[in-house]
């Protein structure tokens, strides 16, 4: 009897809770609340102006068919602009908040986001390869300036520094003024003025790099499935060249892209999705090959 007592009590308590919840639902007013919800003003996109161009520098025109055009002084760039530079090239971008970014030689980067969100100027740049020098203006209000590389996200709390991502050594950062934060996964490292990254993040960078796929770009225009997955999994913020937002929205976009591809898209799926596709019984399209029989996707002859 004593042993059964607690069970009876628990059952009674649960019944009482359920009843009270049902009662509360039944008596809850169904009318919409009359008080006004404070709506946040929509973030306003800002413009970037090309201040200086030296050497071969191009930008990707957004649209269905990707087309690269030469970058000229005075060009106004929007969000989701992708820029690539060649050997000996140099491009200076002046942001609307007076920040300045110098794109060095052999670099591919994207402006993922540049907008005024409240009183904060939000800037998100993606760096696929190469190096950029950023000088962030803070006199005109608070600024949230971040650079995403394939292996790390760098947030500028200070004012200037140089960031590089190289395919062999990974990313590197030299702070000039102020403090930079380098984040690789959960590992965070502060870089002060005149400091560079030391080996404390090297292990984490190597771990991220080992997860990455060797094919980070697409020679046929647009992004490959592997690239999209790699960006989703390995980059913080938007993707490394500024195409993808993070989190659930990125997954939704990738899902939509996959659906489009299955409906007859022309993008060849990479090896990441192969096992899953095999299980589902999909027929794999042949890997892209050059006319000479050399398979660029695998490196095999």
């Amino acid at each position: 009897m004593i042993r059964r007592m607690p069970r009876t009590l628990i059952a009674a308590a649960l019944c009482a809770l359920a009843y009270s919840d049902l009662y509360a639902q039944a008596t809850r007013p169904t009318a919409k609340p009359t008080h006004r919800v404070a709506t946040r003003p929509a973030a306003k996109p800002l413009v970037v102006i090309v201040k200086e161009v030296k050497g071969a520098a191009q930008r990707l025109l957004p649209g269905a068919k990707s087309k690269w055009v030469a970058l000229k002084v005075g060009d106004k760039l929007d969000e989701l602009t992708v820029i690539r530079t060649g050997l000996g090239a140099r491009v200076v971008l002046r942001f609307a908040d007076n920040s300045e970014v110098v794109i060095n030689r052999a670099t591919k980067m994207g402006i993922a986001e540049f907008r005024k969100d409240g009183n904060v100027t939000k800037t998100r740049l993606g760096l696929k390869y190469g190096s950029i020098r950023a000088k962030v203006e803070r006199a005109r209000g608070p600024s949230d300036f971040r650079v995403t590389t394939p292996v790390a996200t760098l947030a500028v709390a200070g004012t200037s520094g140089e960031v590089a991502y190289m395919g062999d050594f990974g990313f590197n950062l030299k702070g000039e003024t102020g403090t930079w934060q380098a984040r690789v996964g959960r590992k965070l490292r502060q870089v002060q003025e005149l400091e560079g990254l030391d080996s404390t993040l090297a292990l984490y960078v190597d771990m991220v790099k080992s997860k990455m796929l060797p094919k980070l770009g697409d020679m046929f225009g647009g992004l490959t499935g592997r690239e999209r997955l790699s960006m989703r999994d390995n980059s913080g913020g938007r993707g490394a060249i500024g195409f993808l937002p993070a989190g659930n929205r990125a997954r939704a976009i990738i899902r939509k892209k996959k659906l489009d591809e299955n409906k007859g898209g022309s993008i060849t799926p990479g090896p990441v999705g192969r096992s899953r596709r095999r299980r589902r019984g999909h027929q794999e399209p042949p890997a892209p090959t050059s006319g000479s029989g050399y398979d660029y996707s695998t490196g095999a002859e």
């Binding site: 060095n104 052999a106 140089e162 395919g167 590197n172 560079g196 980070l216």
Partner: peptide, 26 residues
């Protein structure tokens, strides 16, 4: 990607006589 990085460093070395530390191994 490695070849791109090597060419970038070599180009800087040819033009300026030095490679910026941010592009070199730490």
């Amino acid at each position: 990607m490695e070849y791109v990085a090597i060419l970038a460093r070599a180009d800087e070395l040819r033009r300026t006589g030095r490679v910026s530390p941010v592009m070199l191994q730490e």
